[in-house]
Write a protein that binds this DNA or RNA. Structure first.
Length: 424
RNA sequence: GGAGAGUUGGCAGAGUGGUAAUGCAACGGACUCGAAAUCCGUCGAACCGCCUUAUAAGCGGCGCGCAGGUUCAAUUCCUGUACUCUCCUCCA
C-alpha cells in the first residue's frame, strides 16, 4: 500500500512514477477524489460525534441531578440518525477507496530502468563461464527421465500436468541442494524457519498477493486458507501487526518450503520439465530492516543468492528489472538468471526485491526507534534459490555425453559421497 | 466433532448502560559526586481528521478480539464471528 499523504501532496509525482508501471493517471485521480470525499464525510461525522459526546455528558449530569433531559434526548435522536447515515456513506466511500488503493503497485526506485517489459531490464553483471559442449546437450527432463530420477508421467496420472515425482538419486539431489542452500544462509546470519504452508487471507493481503492476484493461488474449499505461493508470505507476516524494538533489526529469516501456484494464464509455456510447476521447493530469504539500510541489504541479499550459484559453479547473470516488469510490491528487483544449455538462454532462478514500506504499511509491521517514535520497517524478500530450477540447471550444465550427470563438488558431501548419477 | 472458560494499554489486572480503576514498566524532575533506593509529577501504545509549508503543540474523532444490532448514550445488553485455553472424543 502506498502512502496516501505522499500521493495527496504530490499527485504529479505519483502519476509519473506509476505510469511506468502501467497505471493510468485517471486511477490516481479517482483515488484522490475518493480520499477527498472520505475526509469530507469524516469531518462531518466527527463534528456530529463531538456534539453527541458533549450532549451525552449533559444528559448524564441531568439524570444524576434528577432533572428533565427529554429535549436533549430528542435532539440527540436526530443527531444519531444523521451520524448513522453519514457513517454508512463513509463506509461505502472507504470501501472503494481502500480497494483502489490496495490495487496500486509500489513506486519504483529512481534508479530502476524504465520500460514496459523485460526487454528494458538492465544487465548488471555476468558471472561464470558458459560450458562448451562437444555433443548436443539434452534437456533436463530427457536426462532425468532417462536416469529414472524424474517421473512426469506418473505425476500426471496421480496429480496432473505440472507435477513431478523425484525418484531415488533425483530426490537425494533435490534434498542435497536445499540443505546446502539452508546451510549457506545460516552462515550468512539467517535464522532457519519452518513456517505454515497454508495462510489466511489477512496474510495474503499483507504481503500484497490479495486482492489483486487471487486467481494465481490454490485455496482450501470452505476455509480461509491458501496454499502459500512462496515462503515470503508466512515469513513476512511473522511480525504482522507488531512493533519491534529497533535493536532487534535487522531480522534475517530463511525457509525451505514448497510453493504452490496455479499458473493461470501461462498455458503452453514451459510445459515440459521442472521450470514451471504447480508445486516446487524454494529456499526463501526475508529481511526486516530499517529504511535507511534497505538498499544495502538488497545488495547483500542478492549476493547471498549469487553465492549459491557461484559455489555450484553455474553460470548466471544478474539483471535489474524494468519498472513494467517488476512484481506488484517491489520498488526494486534484481533477478538472477541461470544458464540453461538446452534452451541456450538464461532462466530466472531467483528474484530479490526491496519492497520498502509497501508491505509493512499493509501488514502494519513497525519498529520503535531510539527516540520512541514508531515507523514502518522495510521488508525484503528473495529466493535463495528456487530448488527445482537449480536441479534442472545442474542436470543440464553437468550432463555428460553418456547420459550421466556429475555432482557439483560442494554437493558431494550432501550426497553422502556420490559424485555422479548414472543409469541403474 | 462435543462441552465450558476467556480476549481490556508495553505487561499484569478491575470495571456489568453515563468521563476505562489500580499496580508494574516507561518517561520527566528532586535527592546524590554518580547510581540504586526513595519522593514528586506525566502516561491508553498505535491510528484518523482539523490546524500547520512540515513537525511538535493544540482541538476533535476513534479506541476494551472483530463485525453488526438495540439505545440519547455500549467495555457493559443482544446477534454473529475469529482466536486462545481446559476437558471429552478422534488422530500422526
Amino acid at each position: 500500500m502506498l502512502d496516501i499523504k505522499r500521493i495527496r501532496n504530490n499527485p504529479d509525482e505519483a502519476k509519473e512514477k506509476l505510469a511506468t508501471r502501467a497505471v493510468k493517471p485517471e486511477e490516481i485521480d479517482a483515488v484522490l477524489e475518493l480520499d477527498e470525499k472520505r475526509r469530507e464525510l469524516l469531518q462531518q461525522t466527527e463534528q456530529l460525534k463531538g456534539q453527541r459526546n458533549k450532549v451525552s455528558d449533559a444528559i448524564s449530569v441531568a439524570k444524576r441531578n434528577k432533572e428533565d433531559a427529554t429535549a436533549q434526548i430528542t435532539e440527540m435522536r436526530e443527531v444519531g440518525a444523521q451520524i448513522k447515515a453519514l457513517d454508512v456513506e463513509l463506509a461505502e466511500v472507504l470501501d472503494t477507496y481502500t480497494d483502489k488503493m490496495s490495487r496500486l503497485p509500489n513506486f519504483p526506485h529512481d534508479t530502476d530502468p524504465v520500460g514496459p517489459d523485460e526487454n528494458y531490464s538492465r544487465e548488471d553483471r555476468k558471472v561464470g563461464d558458459i560450458r562448451h559442449f562437444d555433443f548436443e546437450p539434452k534437456a533436463h527432463w530427457e536426462i532425468g527421465e532417462a536416469l529414472g530420477i524424474l517421473d512426469f508421467k506418473r505425476a500426471a496420472k496421480v496429480s496432473g500436468a505440472r507435477f513431478v515425482y523425484y525418484m531415488g538419486m533425483g530426490a537425494k539431489l533435490e534434498r542435497a541442494v536445499y540443505n546446502f542452500m539452508l546451510d549457506q544462509h545460516e552462515l550468512e546470519g539467517y535464522e532457519e524457519v519452518i513456517p505454515p504452508y497454508m495462510v489466511n487471507s489477512d496474510s495474503m493481503y499483507g504481503t500484497g498477493q490479495f486482492p489483486k492476484f487471487k486467481e494465481d493461488v490454490f485455496q482450501i474449499k470452505d476455509q480461509d486458507l491458501t496454499l502459500i505461493p512462496t515462503a515470503e508470505v508466512p515469513l513476512t507476516n511473522y511480525y504482522r501487526d507488531e512493533v519491534l524494538p529497533a535493536a532487534q533489526l535487522p531480522v534475517y529469516l530463511t525457509a525451505l518450503t514448497p510453493s504452490f501456484r496455479s499458473e493461470a494464464g501461462s498455458a503452453g509455456r514451459d510445459t515440459r520439465g521442472l521450470i514451471r510447476m504447480h508445486q516446487f521447493n524454494k529456499v526463501e530469504m526475508v529481511k526486516y530492516v530499517k529504511p535507511e539500510t534497505s538498499y544495502d541489504e538488497l545488495e547483500k541479499m542478492t549476493h547471498n543468492a549469487e553465492n549459491i550459484l557461484q559455489q555450484l559453479k553455474l553460470p548466471y547473470h544478474v539483471i535489474t528489472l524494468a519498472t513494467g516488469d517488476m512484481s506488484f510490491t517491489a520498488a526494486e528487483t534484481h533477478d538472477i538468471e541461470v544458464w540453461i544449455p538446452h534452451q541456450e538462454t538464461y532462466r530466472e532462478i531467483s528474484s530479490c526485491s526491496n519492497c520498502e514500506d509497501f508491505q509493512a504499511r499493509r501488514a502494519q509491521i513497525r519498529y520503535r526507534d531510539e527516540d520512541g517514535k514508531v515507523n514502518l520497517v522495510h521488508t525484503l524478500n528473495g529466493s535463495g534459490l528456487a530448488v527445482g530450477r537449480t536441479v534442472a540447471a545442474i542436470l543440464e550444465n553437468y550432463q555428460n555425453e553418456d547420459g550421466s550427470v556429475t555432482i557439483p563438488d560442494v554437493l558431494v558431501p550432501y550426497m553422502r559421497g556420490v559424485k555422479k548419477i548414472e543409469k541403474k
